[in-house]
Design a protein around this nucleic acid. Structure first.
Lengths: 216, 216
DNA sequence: GCCGAACCGTAACGTTCGTTACGGTGCGTT
DNA sequence: AACGCACCGTAACGAACGTTACGGTTCGGC
């Protein structure tokens, strides 16, 4: 449904990247009340330049979301040794990365503005979704299928298995963070959360020695 | 005439409830761009009345959130027969109710405005959280603990078990809906989703005949 | 019938903010 | 040196909107 193609997107200069970084900082500190004047002030540029480069306020937001999405790309999947411990390590690494991203102030601020606009203009939400949830799924599914091929996992639909993994990892953390709650998420507890989630995922989808499925 | 429950909260008259319903409809149709004029027009009342009753725009939003939260209260937990099938039925009923609520346009609109304001003013987010996620937890934990007492479930921390249940039920649905994606959520698939989630929950936390724990 | 309270509809005020326009500055090119 | 270009800083315009004020209407109580 969502293919990741090499972006023929507008090339961004170094100066423009600085401006988009300023937008991100502004979003983090001042929330959704993002004014063009505040961005210009923080980026030490003129509003005229903002409008010349990004068209209007919406274009600036879109460019910022795409810019941040491009930065978040974690290391792609390498070749697959694929024994049980390697698979566990890779799954846990994904879980740790995901939890770290969704608890970062930058990601939270972007998700908040995208969700705030999701009623009227769905474009921001679609971009966030494509580069967050769906990009993660695209990267995870080959891993899951490799695990199945190695008879370490058992499932019928990789998408379904990934969605369950998603739920086990995120639980109520994302919605609580988005709503302003702050459950403790230091790197220590993130690692513990990831380990628990992967353990539970194996309990549900780990291949039985007999070859049966663990859950309906 | 007579209040169903007596909230120490500001009493709302029938007419005021009509106004708050108008706010909800307005939020659903026009998204976050909620203007006082639009509310007054839709509720067939004057702006002066809005300000007299609710103070300011923020007061109106707070009253709306509380109003909707009060309506959502599902039936409280009754006495506990508590065999395996009764526990399953109760858990599935909670899951169905939760999925139905979070996929309703009303809940989505309220969550969107609360999240949109979570950067600056956390009060709306706190209210939504208290009446959504945390109210659900309060109602679920006694059920879970009764299940443990009946030796149908095995866990150490009810809060942890509930959070996992939350993740198994919601998975990626809530964030996708908030961001404007629309995965199919007819009552049929909601029931199927709930059944799957509860099955997986039992696979993780169901008491073993031997009395051990299923997952770390 | 009369009075006051509550409420409706609308006009008006002031602020914020997106957007545009204008003058000034540093810099590379000829 | 002169020119053009890209950019900065700021002022100004206009629309949207929160908030307030005012005149007209309905309705219950005396």
């Amino acid at each position: 449904m969502t293919a990741l193609v090499a972006p023929a997107e507008p090339e961004i200069s170094a100066r423009q990247a600085e401006v988009l970084d300023a937008v991100l900082r502004q979003l983090v500190t001042d929330g959704n009340s993002l004014t063009m004047s505040a961005v210009a002030r923080r980026a030490s540029c003129s509003k005229e330049t903002l409008y010349k480069w990004f068209g209007d306020r919406d274009g600036l937001l879109n460019a910022t979301v795409k810019y941040q999405a491009a930065r978040v790309h974690v290391a792609a999947v390498g070749p697959d040794p694929l024994d049980r411990s390697a698979l566990t390590a890779r799954l846990e690494s994904f879980a740790i990365n995901w939890l770290t991203v969704i608890s970062s102030e930058t990601s939270l601020a972007l998700n908040r503005v995208a969700i705030g606009q999701a009623g009227a203009d769905k474009s921001l939400g679609a971009i966030v979704l494509a580069n967050g949830r769906f990009a993660l799924g695209s990267r995870m599914k080959p891993v899951l299928e490799a695990g199945r091929k190695a008879e370490l996992l058992a499932f019928e639909d990789a998408e379904e298995a990934f969605r369950t993994l998603f739920g086990l990892v995120a639980r109520d953390v994302q919605i609580r963070l988005l709503l302003g709650d702050s459950p403790s998420l230091d790197p220590e507890s993130i690692r513990a959360e990831a380990s628990r989630a992967i353990g539970q995922f194996f309990a549900l989808y780990g291949a039985q020695p007999g070859g049966g499925k663990a859950a309906p």
